[in-house]
Amino acid sequence: MTTPTPRADGKVPHHRAEGPATAPPLLLAPSLGTSTALWDKVAPELSVTHRVVRWDLPGHGRSPAALIGPGATVADLAALVLALADSLGLDRFSYAGVSLGGAVGLHLAVHHPERIDRLAVVCSSAHFNGPGPWRERAAKVRAEGLDELARGAHARWFTPGFTVPALVEDHRTADSGAYAACCDALAAFDIRELLPRIVAPTLLVAGREDPATPPAHLREIADAVPGAALVEIPGASHLAPAERPEAVLAALRAHLGGDAGLGMEVRRQVLGDAHVDRAQERQSPFTARFQDFISRYAWGEIWTDPTLSRRERSMITLTALVAHGHYDELAMHVRAARRNGLSPEEIGAVLLQTAVYCGVPAANSAFAVAQRVLAEEEAAS
């Protein structure tokens, strides 16, 4: 359910809320030059499990330009977010932001750790390549407006051949003074030395084709923030939530919790980090929804059902894979069975049972696969 909101009263940014009022709160922040529309393909899905609140930067979308002025800082924008959260009665919330919105999230996580539950920083950075280019852009916008800059927005924001006209129009119609003030904030922002102070579980999402904040910028944050995770999205440039929404949604669902988050944890426990990391690296926009489905359904619901132990589930899984001849999957689940406590002798007994009910040829192939996997594990130990 979406809650209509009136125009901002000049004290807090314009915002829109979606999802159950009693669900965990999640604030979604835009990038410079965009509006709440940046999250149009992601927010409705997240609102199934969260109280999603999208907000507009000053002078963007429906937020008043007067919320900030020349010489603004990211700290000023963070103060607006806290004022918004306070007005909604949110003492603690999760936060995801793109570019400038992500910088605001980093500031909040460093300076107001008691307010941030989980943090996701999307196509952003702990610094934006020094103040010079941003000061020049601010001066140009103050002198000439945004028309010329907006005409080149699609090249800065998206991969070749892709665009979202509504977002480009948001850029063109933003208030030039407020836009320039946001450029001032980016010019002054450099939080690299403070990143180790972040304690909130943190996800970094990078667009592999992003020229503005390339993956190296997100990797720098991931290396500095204790326990942070990094996801790179192929085929995405700077505005990944608009260009590759399904991949961004899958990453956020896994990070923010619920069945997908629990499922990813169980998946790693059963299959191992190396296997899951390889699967994540191979993920594409085409496979993102399937990976999310697997995490939520197979691992988040079935494998977490306490009716059967993981040992018992491994035995059942081995048998089913033999019955259907899925020998590549069988190799993976032989390794999983060992993690779940089955001995080589017990795995052999399961496969012997399959010879009776699935057929000798199937069991013969299964024994060959299992023997190879067990030999590899013994050699590696």
Rank of each mutant, 00 (worst) to 15 (best):
P214D: 02
P214N: 09
H217V: 09
H217W: 14
R219P: 15
E220N: 09
I221Q: 02
I221W: 02
I221V: 06
I221A: 03
A222Q: 08
A222F: 00
A222L: 04
D223T: 05
A224H: 05
V225W: 00
P226M: 04
G227F: 01
A228M: 01
A228I: 02
A229T: 08
L230F: 04
L230Q: 04
V231M: 15
V231Y: 10
V231H: 13
E232G: 12
I233N: 09
I233G: 04
P234C: 11
A236R: 09
A236Y: 15
S237L: 08
S237F: 14
H238W: 05
L239A: 04
A240W: 05
P241I: 02
A242R: 07
E243K: 08
E243I: 11
E243F: 07
R244D: 07
R244Y: 11
R244C: 13
P245M: 02
E246P: 15
E246L: 15
A247S: 14
A247R: 05
A247H: 09
A247Q: 06
V248C: 06
V248K: 07
V248D: 04
L249R: 14
A250W: 12
A250Y: 13
A250S: 14
A250N: 06
A250I: 13
A250F: 10
A251W: 06
L252C: 04
R253K: 15
R253C: 14
A254W: 09
A254H: 03
A254Y: 05
A254S: 03
G257W: 05
G257P: 03
G258D: 08
G258K: 00
G258Y: 01
D259S: 15
D259Q: 13
L262Q: 00
G263A: 10
G263D: 08
M264F: 08
